[in-house]
Nucleic acid binder design. Sequence first.
DNA 1: AACCTATTTAGATACTTTTCTAAATAGCTG
DNA 2: CAGCTATTTAGAAAAGTATCTAAATAGGTT
Lengths: 90, 90
Amino acid sequence: MAMNTTLKAIADPVRRKILELLKHQSYSAGEIAQQFDLRQATVSYHLKLLKQAGLISERREKNFIYYDLNASVFEEVLRWLYSLGVKGDD
Amino acid sequence: MAMNTTLKAIADPVRRKILELLKHQSYSAGEIAQQFDLRQATVSYHLKLLKQAGLISERREKNFIYYDLNASVFEEVLRWLYSLGVKGDD
DNA sequence: AACCTATTTAGATACTTTTCTAAATAGCTG
DNA sequence: CAGCTATTTAGAAAAGTATCTAAATAGGTT
């Protein structure tokens, strides 16, 4: 089940871009929303799905909510890919 | 775009199971369909998506169509995962 | 407390995906 | 070629997902 949630989470380009943004630093929900031509409520919905998948975590500071990437959740996906015979580093 | 197609393809449990089945040997469309509680037409639809994603290839023999896994397509996904900082083999 | 700003939640709508049934195709085999 | 088997395609219905607007919450600030 975890795997399904993870893969569904990254099967959307908006959510992948959010993860990429968070690679180097945290951003608030508002800062993330600015990167898209979408309403804040919509971005908030994507953040919720990423959070549910465990791919990001949130942290309140002042009245902002900052998001952080948690890439370790991908390890299961990685193992699955390897199990199918994908060859590792190239 | 390729990435999006690949990730959408594996974001479905039926399609993931098809890939797993094909890991060790080829199977015909009918043999694959038998593994699921779904109509053959439905499985055929999933096979079409996997084919479009380049994850499987087909090969006619008699009047069967056999499918083969092509895991190399996953390399792009793997690179993306690594780029996010997922640590490799554990 | 009243207000302001950041963000989420609720509910509606639009779009996409999955599944089904029925019909079509494609290639053997007698 | 007529019939058989395997599979796909077309079209409709059902289910799931993404987006929007409007309203609610939550926490600072004065």
